[in-house]
Structure formats: C-alpha cells, structure tokens
C-alpha cells in the first residue's frame, strides 16, 4: 500500500482551479437552523433570476462544478453551485432547498444534478409540482429509485458508522482498472473532496442516497429534461440507465463515449456544450439563464423561425 501523496491532486493544483478560487467568492448562507449552512458559489449576472443551479453527488463539494461555473459565467450565464448542509431526509432537504431559492430571490431554476444531486433535483421538481420552481433538469449519471444501490437496509445505520466505513461505501464503487488520465484525475479530485467532508455530512448524504425512495416521473411532465450518461465504466448499471430512459421517453439523451463517474470534471468541454444546448430553448423566455443583453438578437429571431433562408 502506498501513502497518500502530500501534493494536491492535479486538478486542485491546476491553473484553472487557482483562477476559479481567485475569481469566484465562496458564500455561506443559513436559511433555517444555525447549523444548516449552505456553501455556494454564485457566478454570472445577478439580475438573472432563473439560473443554473448545480447539485453535487454524495462525495462532492460545491467546487466540483468549477469548470461549469467558469466556462458558462464567462459566456454570460448565471451559474450557482451549492453544497448541502446536513439533512437526513430528502423531504427535509427539499424544504431547506426551497428556502434557499427564496432567500436568493430566484423564480424558477434549472438544475444540473449529478447522481444524488440528480435524484434530489427530481424530488424537488416533484414536490413543487403545484407551484413549479424547477424549469428544467440536466441529469448527469442519475437514478430514479434508491433501491438501485441495494443499500436500503443499511441506510438506517449510516448515522452511527465511523467515517472510514462511510468513505468505503463510496470508494468501493470507483473503478479499479487502468484509466485514462482525465478520468483518473477527476477521481483523485473527488476523493480529496471526500476527505474534507465531515462524518455527519457524509452520513446524511449517504442516507438520502440509499434510504428507500423513488421519483414519480409522471409528476415531472412539465419539466424539460436532458439525460446525460457515459458509455464507459461508471457506478451506474445499464439497467439503471435504461430505467431512466423509460421514465423520461421525451428527454434529450446526451450520451458521452467516455468520462467515468464525474464527466463534468473529466469531459468538461463536452458537458458544457451539452448544457448550452439544454438551456437554448429558454433563451428569449422569462426563464433564460444567459444575460439577454449578450444574446445575439438574430439568434432569438432565428429560434422563432423568423429568419429567411439566406440566398447565395
């Protein structure tokens, strides 16, 4: 066994990451009890009230989406990435998240949800079905039923497990064969984030991830959905992915050839392109994510089919 290297992982040590930390300030927001602190990064034009909100997987912190924050905000999109406080159930989480959205004075949001983030995003859309707060969801390596992890039984005991056992729950799911460099780097980055999480943070997220629960997709029929997944190795089974496609037959399917568990880190340019395509239909509407000042007016005309075929 080798000792952990003392140097930070290649992504944390990269110039891109340093630039991110030096340009986008970290904010802390308390919306209910004092112990419940949301950590967030808010980038791009503040007058946009329907931003893209990024929700990380179990092991992630808000900075796992730094490549989306940087790239999209530079193009005029408002992007907010959040880190969850300790909520022990999805219901509690949704209540808290709703308070956060109200606190930030957001109307309807677009969510990029990765894994657990995708699950709670769907639950959030389900719970706000009557007065919608979720305009669209970009699901990345998502699932609709927690039984996929076959852990519903042990979920009740996560709160009393020691930290190393909790971490093991996550690490066993990471691939063990040889990997492409970008994918390996993304895993390293996530594993370092895992080390920073407190035992309660980790236990509560695993509980939400694994306690028996499922999404009722018919209640999300007004939500615009893109499903992103990878065709190489990831923690999700093929069955789990197919179930997703079946539940959202009209969703756009943004498959990536490769990218592993964390494509927003390992394939950020492809993911960012897919995100822009996902948000395009909202351009020129009330729930736009990109500053309308920065949108070419011809694009809005073109989207409405008001542009004549150019004659050559």
């Amino acid at each position: 066994m080798m000792a952990l290297p003392a140097d930070p992982d290649p992504i944390t040590a990269s110039e891109d990451y340093a630039q991110f930390r030096s340009t986008i300030p970290q904010r802390k927001v308390v919306v209910d009890r004092s112990s419940m602190t949301w950590v967030l990064y808010d980038a791009g034009p503040r007058h946009i009230k329907s931003p893209l909100v990024c929700l990380p997987p179990v092991c992630g912190s808000a900075d796992v989406f730094f490549k989306q924050l940087m790239h999209l905000s530079a193009k005029g999109y408002r992007v907010i990435s959040v880190e969850y406080p300790v909520y022990w159930s999805v219901d509690e989480f949704c209540e808290g998240f709703l308070k956060l959205i109200d606190h930030l004075e957001l109307t309807k949001i677009h969510i990029l949800g990765a894994s657990l983030g995708a699950f709670v995003a769907q639950k959030m859309a389900e719970k706000t079905e009557k007065s919608p707060r979720v305009a669209s969801i970009f699901i990345c390596n998502g699932f609709i039923d927690t039984t996929a992890f076959k852990q519903t039984g042990s979920a009740k005991a996560f709160w009393l497990m020691p930290a190393f056992m909790l971490k093991r729950q996550i690490l066993v799911n990471l691939p063990s064969e040889k990997l492409e460099m970008d994918v390996a780097n993304s895993i390293d980055f996530m594993v370092e984030r895992l080390d920073i999480l407190s035992k309660d943070q980790l236990a509560s997220r695993l509980t939400m991830n694994c306690a028996a629960n499922y999404v009722e997709p018919q209640r999300l029929k007004d939500v615009y959905i893109t499903i992103m997944d990878v065709f190489d190795e990831s923690a999700l089974s093929t069955r789990c992915k197919e179930e997703m496609y079946k539940c959202y037959p009209d969703a756009k399917r943004a498959h990536l050839k490769t990218g592993g568990n964390f494509p927003y880190l390992s394939r950020s340019d492809e993911v960012n392109t897919h995100l822009e395509i996902h948000l395009l239909p909202f351009q020129g509407t009330r729930y736009c994510v990109k500053d309308p000042e920065l949108v070419d007016p011809e694009e809005i005309k073109a989207a409405r089919g008001e542009i004549e075929l150019p004659t050559t």
Binding site: M1, M2, A3, L4, P5, K167, L171, L174, S176, E177, K178, L179, E180, M181, D182, A184, N185, I187, D188, V191, L194, D195
Partner: peptide
C-alpha cells in the same frame, strides 16, 4: 491519444489507482 507519450498515461493512472484505493 490525448497525451503525447503513452507510457506516461499508464504510469500515472497506476499510481492514481493505488492512492485511490487506500484512503
């Protein structure tokens, strides 16, 4: 390949793997 020298990738991903497994 995305990186110029192939042996580098192998070496790198190998060490990555080990560091990932023991934490």
């Amino acid at each position: 390949p995305q990186v110029a020298s192939v042996p580098d990738i192998r070496l790198d991903s190998n060490t990555k793997q080990k560091s990932g497994k023991c934490c």
